[in-house]
Design a protein around this nucleic acid. Structure first.
Lengths: 177, 177
DNA sequence: GTCTATAACGAGATAGAC
DNA sequence: GTCTATCTCGTTATAGAC
């Protein structure tokens, strides 16, 4: 059995992706995990501490995944395709990007979380720009921003329409020239 | 003085764009407008009724604006440019697209609002596809989706970084080939 | 590390007077 | 159309026992 702290983070990540960080409570977490809400406060004193832990954990997880991509995929097109597929899977579970959700909730989160979100997206853009540079793109930084914006927006729209193919229709143009 | 109903809608739209629909209360609206919260309930019995009115009003407003574009601008590039500028102005006020915000909050809104959001974005895509068709785009429907996704995502990221230029970097490629 | 118990507050919503 | 007054519930958070 995974420890309580990890179970809290896993569930909170899931709920943030579906309902939004402001739309679940410590009581929701406690009930689903089978503890009392005071136990959630033991692990994350205030809810903003939970938000920060979520963003920092996801940033680390993505950077780890990107590192492992080097051994699994050969071409940058394959690596970007894997990222696209990862986001497509969100739609089946009525999820969107967790940090996209928190970016929408930007005005209600702490300065620390804002900074962490900024770093999360910076890392993503840096990795994407590297991939596009490997594809000999003349402007990899702008291409990375265009891809990331398209990914976030397409996920939002695809969930609304329950149509994961909208993500392909939006992003295939970046990997199939 | 504009009537109370309109003042409620204007303020609620503003708050939805900044904080999100779930992150302001009838008490917030009442205090800002200078009435009691029971007066807000008189105009919109339940909060979900307010959400529906907001989306339907914005859909009508956009369709009216698109109609007026025909008389003001000559080229589809100019018309799309006007839409881009409209969204760029949001950033200065820490706003994002109201329906983009509600799409993020999708799991917490009523079936009626979900349907209204779908129609709002359908109208936007239809109008965009028409513009791209006028630009002799071989695939105007997909181009419309790519543009709309980019617009929603770029607004989210631009607000996070307080950098409206990110919207240009994302979308100029659609109007300056 | 988890529990019981509770504080302190704000939310959506309603009844009925004016 | 707006008011006063109130209800009911959920929320974040804490103190202190086990």
């Amino acid at each position: 059995m995974t420890d309580t702290r990890t179970r809290i983070l896993d569930l909170a990540e899931d709920l943030t992706q579906t309902k939004g960080f402001n739309n679940f409570s410590y009581l929701d977490l406690a009930a689903a995990i089978g503890v009392k809400n005071s136990s959630i406060h033991y692990h994350f004193k205030a809810k903003k501490d939970l938000a920060l832990a979520l963003v920092e954990r996801l940033r680390d997880a993505h950077n780890e995944a990107f590192k492992s991509f080097e051994h699994v995929y050969v071409t940058p097109q394959e690596r970007i395709g894997a990222l696209i597929n990862h986001f497509k899977c969100y739609i089946q579970n009525n999820k969107i990007c967790m940090c996209g959700m928190l970016a929408a909730e930007f005005e209600t989160v702490s300065p620390e979380v804002r900074k962490a979100l900024s770093l999360y997206f910076r890392d993503l853009r840096t990795w994407l720009a590297d991939q596009f540079a490997q594809m000999d793109d003349p402007n990899p930084k702008d291409r990375a921003l265009q891809f990331l914006s398209g990914l976030e927006g397409a996920t939002l729209l695809a969930r609304l329409e329950s149509d994961p193919a909208m993500i392909d229709r939006t992003l295939d143009v970046f990997v199939k020239p």
